[in-house]
Write a protein that binds this DNA or RNA. Structure first.
Lengths: 346, 346
DNA sequence: GTTTGCTGGGAAAGCGCTTGCCGTACCGTA
DNA sequence: TACGGTACGGCAAGCGCTTTCCCAGCAAAC
């Protein structure tokens, strides 16, 4: 592994000159020497040591992205947006998956701090757990104290730049749309309530139902993991409790869960939307290809990732508080929800 | 940003002692001093500088994963497998997306080299392009010369450790299974032919058809991008060319394309599998939830990612040549393919 | 001819950490 | 009492690079 010193020696110049030639400096170097250095570097297959550069120059071109799980299309889309954007800025992205383990999340944040990453983007964390949150807050604060930039996607626990989808508003709009279709009796497939996203959507949905005096008694709410299988299991349990016979519409608080829900309904021979309507949330890419295509609430996931990166890259006045980019959610009605005319019900 | 030196001073010990306390060394330090150091570190919010550590100690705990696009479920699954495995080994993963741009791929490999990443995993590259391949080969060789480890997933252009799914075998098995169902007339939805994965699958499929004297004339082969929309467009063009009326089964060379194909068929009001059977390849998680659930060839994607990491982590004798982990592909027949009985055809 | 101003090269001081080596204190043993 | 052995601190030499500062050389100005 050739070093700069070796290159300099072989080119017959000083370390300083070699450095100036090989790594964009403002200083001009005479063409003759420049060529010699380049030739030597090529011959020796010189590859700069990024660690040494970081140490000496005090800067890195890497940002960290911490998210739940790349295999989850929701996060994959966000990450994809961030990465595509990062590529344009010549940034190296370090990505880590927490698999919803707060300890791992904390560990990764510390790791990125140690790496002196330029910025950290947190997506889809948001546990509603006093103690862990506090620990993470501390870790982030000390990272920021050292000059690091932080942005979070889809949560609002921290005083940092945030990309905030309108989960409540989206859920309310979805409720309204479903009410407009004539539905009054809903079952809800929800995720772990300590996830802020779940809470917001739940609250929004319930709130709007309340305004319309539609019911959502607790026994019609089933929760499971925030996963496909969680959605599947939740629908099974709703069925076993006889709830599916009482309602005309099932709402899942994420598309991933809705996919599981749809599978369960299919296995139960319950036709969607003829017998039951079904809606999800997020509009991940695959759901438009389900049969029937899923009604859902669209979030511009890729863009959210990109915007988070923007937040973190923009230089900004120290004085300003944390900024919040609000992202609108839009109801998309597709084939999985039907208008509830007289007589159609059951 | 506190440094080790400051911690040492505050604790009243030498730099060496502080280092030994804070970063796992074999050397023992008396409990009294140890406590002082820990206290000082805590108070000063000391966070070790990973770059300095890397420089001084000559080791890093990071590996690079270079793949096409996280948003593509195929790669997301592979990446997910690798990340989950990496987490167990306390590794930091740097992930980059090439978006199928060979230049970007090359750039990332060089970047990871500069970062002195412990290992690089390349997934889903595999362009069939003489010149780019050569460039990449050179970059990888020089990385390896510096002690880096390399593994690739699903290709075989380089003399490096490889996780190799049996694309040809899988395609042959799929052909056999479809022939067994009675199909003789196929249309093929394929991807860019410079992708090795595409070629292997194509060759395997065509080979097996040939053995059974079934036809696959060129006009029944449509290609598009290796994407959902590519699959959609390909089926549209097959339809416009009247091909869909000649065949009983459409095979897409990846599930992602099959999803697009299915959508196109639905838009064309062509029932699957009643009128046409459809099969894909990969068995990405979502396809079992399509309607009808997609017949496909299963690849253990998560495991492939994990195995690649294993390859790269295992210490091995210098003498051994590159190792190849072969991964079996297994046909999974689901609802999208039907037996072709007499009379069912068209 | 002397001074001034500029260009471009080099010496060397770090950046924050690890670790080989040496030194000291203290133990047990003969 | 003397001596070898062990435990544990500290000194200092790097790791590979950037960058400040200094200096030589030369052209232009006086």
């Amino acid at each position: 592994m050739a070093t700069l010193a070796e290159v300099a020696r072989q080119a017959g110049v000083s370390l300083a000159t070699a450095s100036r030639v090989l790594n964009g400096s403002t200083r001009v170097v005479r063409a003759e020497l420049r060529d010699k250095v380049v030739a030597a570097a090529t011959e020796l297959r010189y590859t700069p040591n990024a660690h040494a550069q970081a140490l000496a120059g005090n800067h890195t071109a890497s940002v960290g992205v911490v998210l739940h799980d790349v295999s989850d299309p929701y996060f994959a889309a966000i990450a994809g947006g961030a990465m595509r954007h990062a590529a344009e800025h010549d940034l190296l992205v370090m990505m880590s998956c927490t698999f919803r383990d707060p300890d791992r999340e904390l560990a990764y944040v510390r790791m990125l701090h140690q790496q002196r990453a330029q910025a950290i983007i947190l997506a889809g964390s948001g546990y509603h757990d006093r103690e862990r949150t506090e620990l993470l807050r501390t870790a982030l604060a000390s990272y920021q104290a050292g000059g690091g930039r932080v942005a979070v996607v889809s949560q609002h626990r921290f005083d940092v730049d945030t990309v905030l989808p309108d989960n409540q508003g989206g859920a309310r709009a979805l409720a309204r749309a479903l009410l407009d279709l004539g539905h009054r009796d809903f079952a809800l497939v929800t995720g772990p309530e300590h996830l802020l996203t779940v809470r917001d959507r739940y609250l929004g949905f319930r709130h709007e139902l309340g305004r319309a005096a539609a019911k959502l008694p607790n026994h019609r709410v089933a929760d499971g993991g925030f996963t496909r299988d969680g959605g599947y299991a939740a629908v099974r349990s709703l069925h076993e409790a006889g709830v599916l016979d009482e309602v005309t519409c099932v709402v899942a608080l994420s598309d991933v869960m809705a996919i599981g829900a749809l599978a369960a309904l299919r296995d139960l021979d319950i036709r969607v939307p003829d017998r039951l309507s079904l809606a999800g949330f997020d509009d991940i890419p695959t759901v438009r290809d389900l049969a029937p295509p899923l009604s859902t609430v669209r979030l511009p996931l890729e863009e959210m990732g990109a915007r988070a990166l923007d937040l973190v890259l923009e230089t900004r006045g120290e004085s300003d508080g944390p900024r919040v980019v609000r992202v609108a959610a839009e109801v998309v009605l597709r084939g999985s929800t039907a208008r509830l005319d007289e007589g159609v019900r059951r």
